[in-house]
Design a binder for these strands. Structure first.
Lengths: 202, 202
DNA sequence: ATAGGTAAACTGCACCGAGTAGTTTACATT
DNA sequence: AATGTAAACTACTCGGTGCAGTTTACCTAT
C-alpha cells in the first residue's frame, strides 16, 4: 500500500488544514464556514458531512494541535551531573517548544478564546499539562538532594518558565515580535539558568 | 455649578459603562450594539448619536481605560538607599498595577484582540508604554553606579517583570486563577527582588 | 483482469431563521 | 414647536439544512 489516500480522507485533511488557517487568522467568532469551505476547495455541505458544527470542528483542531507535540522534554534528575548543565537542557528544550510552529499555532488559536472560555482553557491545559510537571519534579528532587535551597518547588518552576517566556513567548504572541535568533535564545537560556542558580543553589 | 450632569452627558457615561462591560464579556466581535444599548437602558439610536460606529466606540473604551492609570510608579534611583528596598517598592507597585481592576479590565478587553490586530497592540502599548522605561532607567543607573553588574538593562528589566507576571498576571488572565492574596503578593515581590539581586548585585 | 453496477460521498445551490451594524419613521414629552 | 426616543426597517452575514444531480470507491459477475 502506497499513499492510499481515499478521496474522503484527503478532503477531511483539506478541511482540517483550511480550518486551522481560518481559525488562526480570524479567531473562532471571526472564522466563517463558507470562507473555510472555499479555502479547502470543498463544498460547505462536505464540511458538515465531516463535522457536525463549527464548535466541534474547532475542538478537533485544538485537539489535533495538542497531540502534535513530541511531548518529550521531561527532563530527568541526575544526582551526579552538574545542575547548570541539566537546567540548560531544560531551558533549551522549553525554548525549542516555544519556538515550534505548531505550538505557536496552538496558542494563537486558543489563547484569545481562553480569556472568555475557561472550559477551553482548562481542557487544553489538561490535554498537554505534563511538561510543567517535569521541571517541578526535577526541582523537587534537586532540593531533596540538598543541591538546591529548600523552597516552594512549584513557585520556583513558575519563575524559571517566567524568565524564559518573558523574552521568548509573550512579546511574540501579542506584539508580533520576531522570535529570538539562535544566539539570543542561547543568551536567554544561559541567563535563565544563571539567575535561577544564583537564587537557589545551595 | 453642582454636579450639573446634563441628561445627555449622563447617557453618554451610561453607554461607555455598558460598552465596557459588553466588550469585557464578549470581546469586540461578540459584543452587540443592541445588547449594549439595552444594557445602558438607552435607545440604540442614542448610542449612534454619541458614537458613529462600533469601532469608534471600542477605541474610545480602550483609550479611556488607558488614561485611567495614575501612571506614577516611575521609580527614581537613589544612590544611597539600599537596592533591595528600592526594588521592593518597584515590585510592589508593579503588582499593585497588575492587581488594579481597571488594568485587568483593559487587558481582558484588548489582549485577545491584539493577537489579530497589531495596530491595536502597538497603539495601546504606546499609549501607556512609559512605565516599562522607569525600571529600565533605574537598572541602567544602578549599573552605571557600579552597584549592579553591568549587563543588558533592558533584558534585565524584562526578567524582573517576567518573574512577577509569571505568578500575578498570566495565570489570572488566561486560566481565571484568583489573584494572589496580599501575603502571596509579598512573597512574589520578596522573591523577585531576592532572585534579581542574587544574579545582578555587584 | 475487465466491465458493470451499487452505495456512498461530493457538489452547488437555494433556503431557513436568527442576528448583525446601521438608518429611518413616527410618536411622545416637555 | 422641538428634541429625543423606541420600534420598525434595511441590507446583509451567519451557521446550518435539504435536495437533485454528479462523482468516486468498491464489489461482483463475466
Amino acid at each position: 500500500m502506497e499513499k492510499a489516500l481515499t478521496l474522503t480522507e484527503k478532503k477531511r485533511l483539506d478541511i482540517l488544514a483550511a480550518a486551522q488557517d481560518e481559525f488562526k487568522e480570524k479567531g473562532f467568532l471571526g472564522a466563517s464556514m463558507d470562507s473555510l469551505a472555499k479555502r479547502a476547495e470543498v463544498s460547505k455541505r462536505t464540511v458538515y458531512n465531516h463535522f457536525p458544527s463549527k464548535e466541534v470542528l474547532f475542538h478537533n483542531i485544538v485537539k489535533e494541535l495538542c497531540d502534535s507535540f513530541s511531548q518529550a522534554a521531561n527532563i530527568q534528575y541526575h544526582p551526579n551531573k552538574p545542575l547548570d548543565e541539566q537546567l540548560y537542557v531544560a531551558a533549551t528544550s522549553e525554548i525549542e517548544l516555544l519556538a515550534s510552529e505548531c505550538f505557536r499555532d496552538l496558542n494563537r488559536i486558543t489563547i484569545s478564546e481562553c480569556i472568555r472560555s475557561p472550559e477551553l482553557a482548562s481542557s487544553t491545559l489538561e490535554h498537554l499539562g505534563q511538561q510543567k510537571d517535569g521541571l517541578h519534579v526535577w526541582i523537587s528532587e534537586a532540593m531533596n538532594d540538598g543541591r538546591l535551597k529548600t523552597a516552594d518547588a512549584n513557585f520556583a518552576a513558575q519563575q524559571f518558565l517566567g524568565l524564559i517566556k518573558a523574552s521568548a513567548f509573550w512579546p511574540q504572541l501579542f506584539m508580533s515580535q520576531t522570535f529570538p535568533s539562535p544566539e539570543q535564545q542561547k543568551i536567554i537560556a544561559d541567563d535563565t539558568v544563571l539567575m535561577f542558580l544564583a537564587r537557589y543553589k545551595a
